[in-house]
Nucleic acid binder design. Structure first.
Lengths: 240, 240
DNA sequence: GAGTGGTCTAGACCACTTG
DNA sequence: AAGTGGTCTAGACCACTCC
């Protein structure tokens, strides 16, 4: 069941992209929208709040809700969008190689790369993403195999997120990410064929993934070829 | 006037940091909080929504609101926090040099670095941030001088954001940021004294800043020494 | 003063989790 | 069946913008 406020949100969003409400124009007032959609003001406000969060509109007391003009809009990132989803949105040719696909168990001996406790059974998956012929990213995943079962190399070649959400019907709730620039290792050079010699660092996006029940289930280290890396964000100033 | 829901948000947030509600425990139910604070459920829900956004709690229907255990919590980033605020939070010794502070006007001849239209009067400010003795960041700002007036070198040495918000009483509403890795120029090497020779890229955070009335007023290009760069984010999976 | 969005209330029903 | 959070309603007052 799709909530009413969500439908209204979608409707208005569509209207914005179809220039029914062009950039810099104002949406109808909340009261007018109440009349249009035959609903309560609170429901309208929830819909507008979502648009505000996403950076599509800017609300101002006493004035109204103004459509924000877009620069960055084409890249609907931030949030937890997965690699596969992202690249699909933008017609890139992507090939995924899976040089490592194995089951391991966390031991005291293991370099403590992950935050998983000793004894946790994991999938360890390394994937190389080749975008339009360029070896661009190394994705290294550690995923709890007691939570996400029956992963296969085939699934890894497509989208693990999609499998988790659509097939297992679990939902990835949130993640903590850290972006740094790390020195290139020999293994990096082996995997990222064609990486220019003068580069000495890769851009690393490390993230911890959690399910809705707050289970920590996934640790991913994505290492990007620096000239192929871009991260976009829409940020609202905290009123805190 | 501070809204009630905001006070409740702060109260609960404090209680979380003071371990009144430890990690992984559940907050009192919304109905219980209604009784505790003698208010309506909607007000409680607004307070909890804010905590949810910030990644302090995870709400689950039928269960309750669970306190999320923190890894990354110490670094309350994401959003639009300025450099100065950030570094202050974490007791670093910061020195700021201001090698360039000038007024310019956008001309057709100008390399179109910024998105400002021709004729816009700007401050052009270059700052170098020296953190604990290490030349770490070059901040290059282009700020509309017809919007932000009376900027001085002295203000630039402290925090421009603080000046805008506290002295001009304007509010920075939102920004679009892009993170990339850019090749090092000769000017970069001159400004970032001590930058190791083997480095060939800096991490660039480019951002466009907008006021609450959607005026585009600031373009900043921050170039970070790669071994000094870190960007942390808490991201919720979009339900879109 | 009229119109806007921001806060707050009190109540209702629903979907989900747990015993 | 009882308790939880999620949605929705209808109304009130306030702070702000603009004329």
């Amino acid at each position: 069941m799709i909530p009413l406020y969500f439908k209204i949100y979608q409707q208005v969003k569509d209207d914005i992209s179809n220039n029914v409400y062009p950039a810099n124009s104002f949406l109808p007032s909340e009261n007018e929208l109440v009349a249009q959609f035959h609903t309560s003001r609170d429901t309208i406000r929830k819909a507008l709040a979502k648009l505000d969060e996403e950076g599509l509109i800017q609300k101002r007391r006493g004035k109204g809700s103004q459509v924000i003009s877009h620069q960055l809009r084409h890249f609907p990132i931030s949030g937890l969008t997965s690699f596969h989803e992202l690249k699909q949105l933008q017609k890139f040719q992507v090939v995924t190689e899976v040089p490592i696909f194995e089951r391991i168990t966390v031991t005291t001996g293991t370099k403590n790369i992950t935050l998983f406790p000793v004894g946790t059974p994991l999938f360890h998956i390394v994937r190389v993403r080749i975008i339009d012929g360029i070896h661009s990213v190394i994705d290294e995943d550690y995923i709890r195999s007691d939570v996400i079962s029956n992963l296969t190399k085939d699934i890894a070649q497509h989208s693990i997120y999609e499998y988790i959400e659509k097939s297992l019907n679990l939902s990835v709730a949130y993640a903590e990410k850290t972006i740094t620039a790390q020195l290139i290792t020999n293994r990096d050079r082996e995997l990222l064929v064609g990486l220019p010699e003068e580069e000495n660092r890769l851009i690393q996006v490390e993230s911890q993934g959690y399910l809705a029940d707050t289970t920590y289930f996934q640790h991913t280290i994505a290492r990007h070829r620096p000239d192929q890396f871009q991260f976009d964000e829409f940020a609202r100033r905290q009123t805190t």
